[in-house]
Design a protein around this nucleic acid. Structure first.
Lengths: 197, 197
DNA sequence: CGATTTTTTGAATCATATCAACGTACGTGG
DNA sequence: CCACGTACGTTGATATGATTCAAAAAATCG
């Protein structure tokens, strides 16, 4: 059940067999259907999620009802309302399956305990957060210094699979542009490609 | 020399006297004059910096020469080109003092060694990155869902001191708006306040 | 003081959003 | 398996927040 997860661990950390066992124990698996929510705003996030199969999005909802995609996560990636998970206070983020998905649940309490028992796990997550932080910083920087089209091109370069797999509306929201604008950008890019060919 | 740093540590972790000693050893202090750079893009970042006194900014420079402020750091905060520090590859970020400043340098190699020797230090940084990640996510979200004025108001609420201490041009850049726009926003806000009073 | 940096102001312009309407695709129940 | 509803994508016309460019005023610094 945890093959993908442990292959991910192995890329960034080393655990003893005993440690693997301890870690393995605390995960439970959950199947989540397309359009269904894993987390609702107002919830206290008891888990962070490792995506084994499928695709999910986290998003916030403004007072005026508009949604903003915070994160898109496919297989082999983590997703959570980290703010709520850390503080164990009600969160502001929703997590919804974009496709029928399978996720592994890592409970807050167990993780805190495991940090003590398995120092390498703390290292793994320290490094994970480091990379996540750097990635976010690049995204923010791109938001500050690049046009909508440039941002879309960067995403294609960084995660080509995502832009094919995820509906345009969510890609647009993730990039901070309207679906209409992204649709026009795509059209524009097709024209350019045709002219070049 | 490390009073502020250790008071910061104490708020988030516990160390034994022996551990404190081990940590203390690896820091060196540096004085940096206003307008001088601590890090230049292209450098391999050998250090992360803890600000003891003063104020610094990290920023990127586009091909067209335009600057974008990534981070503003005052006393009791860390600043770095984290991407370069992690990978030990040439970075893309500059760090410059906005005021005459004093920083503590934490060398990459020592930190990696200390992570082994002092597990609580790994915990401290894991938590630091967690919080930094959440903060960045809120900043990106704000960038996606709020107007320039709203973002400025949020910053005032979150870091009132910053907006007074740091020149408008850097605040503007940090928020992803032009200095001209921020100037107009400030004017607009003053008018509103006057009318309310 | 003179020089440089920072802030302000005005007018014109631009990238992207908004609103509205229609086209397309998908999947679910009858 | 068709039909209907809902979700997603496209297109056009118009609006708007913020930028750009230019220039002057104000603040800061050696």
């Amino acid at each position: 059940m945890t093959a993908l997860l442990f292959s991910n661990f192995n890329r960034h950390a080393q655990f003893t067999d005993d440690e693997y066992q301890k870690i393995k124990e605390v995960f439970t698996k959950s199947y989540i259907r397309k359009k269904k929510n894993l987390v609702n705003e107002g919830d206290i996030s008891k888990y962070i999620f490792f995506v084994e199969k499928g695709c999910l999005r986290s998003f916030t909802v403004n007072k005026d009802g508009s949604e903003h995609v915070v994160q898109l996560a496919i297989e082999d990636h983590w997703i959570a309302d980290l703010s709520s998970f850390i503080t164990q206070m009600p969160g502001t983020i929703n997590i919804e399956a974009i496709e029928d998905s399978e996720v592994l649940l890592l409970p807050h309490q167990d993780l805190e305990r495991l940090y003590h028992q398995v120092p390498s796990l703390e290292k793994y997550f320290r490094q994970l957060y480091q990379r996540a932080y750097v990635g976010l910083q690049q995204r923010l920087n791109s938001r500050h210094s690049s046009s909508a089209e440039e941002r879309y091109r960067e995403l294609i370069k960084l995660q080509p699979h995502l832009t094919q797999r995820v509906p345009l509306i969510y890609i647009a929201s993730y990039l901070g542009i309207t679906p209409e604008s992204l649709s026009r950008i795509r059209k524009q890019m097709h024209i350019k490609v045709e002219n070049t060919a």
